[in-house]
Structures are given as structure tokens and as C-alpha cells.
């Protein structure tokens, strides 16, 4: 299972504890997390399910590539970091 961690900045709005989540792609991992933490969904994804404009993810330290489909592969022991861009504040 991948370890999904969230930027500290989101925590004052909605608690997003790090969790081990099953999933082969970034989309799978996020969906798995939001099923357990529904309130966090709207803080990370917009109303069309797209990653918010000023959010991004790193998978084992590498920036994600597919912002449209979130299809980036996630290895079983990967660490996924959800971070906010410096822009957009």
C-alpha cells in the first residue's frame, strides 16, 4: 500500500491524516483516501473531480505528470505527497 501524506497547510481547514492506501494509480489512491475522508475531497479536487489548479502531487519525490487523468502509476510501497503550489495564495 502507498503512503499518502498531505501538506500541513490543509490541516487547519480539514484534518487529513497520512494513511496507507491501496491503489495502482494516483486516481485510485486519492479515491481510496476520499472514501474514508469525504470532507477532504473538495479541498483537493474541484467539483468536476479535477485536481485543484494550485495543488500537485509528488510520487516518491517525482512530480506527477497527468493532471487531467491522474493516471500516474503508484508502486505498492510508494510515498505520495499532496502539496500546494506557491502560486494561488
Amino acid at each position: 500500500m502507498a503512503l499518502l501524506r498531505f501538506t500541513q497547510n490543509i490541516q487547519r481547514h480539514v484534518a487529513c491524516p497520512a494513511r496507507q492506501i491501496e491503489g495502482a494509480t494516483l486516481a485510485d489512491v486519492l479515491e481510496g483516501y476520499f472514501r474514508q475522508h469525504e470532507q477532504a475531497r473538495g479541498y483537493v479536487l474541484d467539483d468536476q473531480g479535477k485536481l485543484r489548479h494550485h495543488m500537485t502531487a509528488f510520487i516518491d519525490g517525482n512530480q506527477m505528470r497527468d493532471r487531467e487523468g491522474l493516471s500516474d502509476p503508484v508502486a505498492p510501497d510508494a510515498v505520495v505527497d499532496l502539496v500546494q503550489a506557491l502560486s494561488g495564495g
Binding site: Y43, R52, Q84, G88
Partner: peptide, 8 residues
């Protein structure tokens, strides 16, 4: 409007 985290 939280910018990064959307409208609430």
C-alpha cells in the same frame, strides 16, 4: 475562497 483549496 481559499485559493489552493477552493471555495467553501
Amino acid at each position: 475562497n481559499h485559493g489552493h483549496f477552493g471555495i467553501k
